[in-house]
């Protein structure tokens, strides 16, 4: 069973795509909000994080 302890084995191909696309969209939304969104409040809150991650900032 050691071989089958992988993340895709227990999902059907269709479910895998649904989960993957959803994860990509939600992940992109979160990263955009924390790292790139052009809002002063978001910028000031995430300021040190944006610099630390090397996001293009101000």
């Amino acid at each position: 069973m050691a071989v089958s302890t992988t993340s895709s084995v227990t999902l059907s191909a269709n479910d895998r795509l649904v989960a993957g696309v959803f994860a990509l969209l939600l992940g992109a939304f979160l990263v955009f909000g924390a790292g790139l969104a052009n809002s002063a409040v978001l910028h000031d809150t995430a300021h040190d994080t944006r610099h630390s991650y090397g996001f293009p900032c101000h």
Partner: peptide, 25 residues
């Protein structure tokens, strides 16, 4: 604020990495 932003960024990159893995198989 930095901690919150790191949590959001971490969750975001975690989802992106997992999504990339799931979509690519």
């Amino acid at each position: 604020g930095t901690l919150l932003a790191n949590l959001v960024t971490g969750a975001g990159f975690g989802l992106l990495l997992a999504g990339f893995s799931l979509v690519s198989g």
